[in-house]
Design a protein around this nucleic acid. Structure first.
Lengths: 195, 195
DNA sequence: GTCTATATAATGATAGAC
DNA sequence: GTCTATCATTATATAGAC
């Protein structure tokens, strides 16, 4: 995990926003240049491989970001229900309460569109989600659930978070996300941690 | 609701597949022409407004399709739990057990990318989902739930279905969708219809 | 590292023959 | 309705000066 210089980090964040808002093909170099304040040529200086290399690095950065802001909470030495609630709130922060979208979800949407560099990305994302699902599952096991039930509960958390994000967009209603996360917190406490 | 001639319907289905697989900007006229077996010029004969007009009609067609295959089940004169299960199975069929994706979700992902014709679409989709959420909600009310609880249950069904679709793609694991729908059916029976 | 200028390919879109 | 041929525009990408 190489540390990212602050200037480069700002650049990466700006680029990520454009890809989230417009998708891979929709994010043209003109858009990316405008958003960063750089010229196209300067972008190619930073990313000689063009959009392909850009998104590869952005995905790695996003995975680290999600790990720090969201899933890291599952490894903390606290009660499992606290870990889960912190994780869910972390995801809410990461998505700005459901208003922002996740780069991983955006780039996974159309695998057939850019097979060349896309396949490696899909594998990376898939593998990372396996890790996160396992961390969630382990958290539920620590709470006393049997392996199979824990795995199902973990699936449900992931489905609900990404589902609420998607549906909030479909319905143009950010509250869909915020109420879904609130309800998820409650349901976890009720179903798995009623002391 | 004007009936669609069979030949046009085949055309529409082929175009829809391309937009689902590649997104709005990723679906170039070259791709669309190849997939339909027509030339670009012929596509412009059918859709003088180009991709903008195309997707507008495809969205309308998709809404009708979803209404027939999925949400129509909620209006049937059966027990509410049967209606709900049929609806969920209808969604599973519509997405080919989670392997296909939904055009509405795909085109809603990047609202900023094509504001011109895009805004009208967003309103259409948003309005349609309001109607569907209401139909779901009414079904839960028929089962004896109070309005607020029924609304929450309806939200949860939509979030789970679209969430499972999204996460199945992220994790490259179609079973995520099929197990999520199975679990949703069970949970509905248990939580809301335990006789 | 940044830029302007430019090369090259692909895009959406049209003209006009059949 | 379908096509080939073509247009103008925009896309990705590079060369080379500062």
């Amino acid at each position: 995990m190489i540390p990212v210089p602050p200037a480069k980090s700002v650049l990466i964040n700006k680029l990520t926003t454009v890809f989230i808002d417009r998708g891979y093909e929709g994010a043209t170099l003109t858009h990316l240049a405008r958003a960063t304040g750089l010229s196209k040529a300067s972008l190619y200086h930073h990313f000689p491989g063009g959009k392909g290399e850009m998104t590869t690095l952005l995905v790695q950065h996003t995975i680290n970001h999600l790990d720090q802001m969201v899933f890291r909470h599952l490894q903390q030495d606290k009660r499992p229900d606290e870990c889960l609630i912190n994780m869910i709130n972390g995801f809410s922060d990461y998505t700005q309460a459901g208003q922002s979208g996740c780069l991983l979800a955006v780039l996974s949407q159309h695998p057939v569109a850019h097979e060349a560099v896309g396949n490696a990305r899909q594998v990376l994302i898939k593998t990372q989600f396996q890790t996160w699902q396992r961390a969630l599952s382990d958290c539920f096991k620590k709470a006393g659930l049997r392996p199979k039930k824990a795995a199902r509960a973990a699936d449900e958390v992931l489905n609900t978070l990404y589902g609420a994000l998607q549906v909030a967009r479909l319905r143009q209603q950010p509250e869909v996300f915020t109420t879904a996360t609130k309800r998820l917190n409650k349901r976890i406490s009720r179903d798995y941690f009623k002391a």
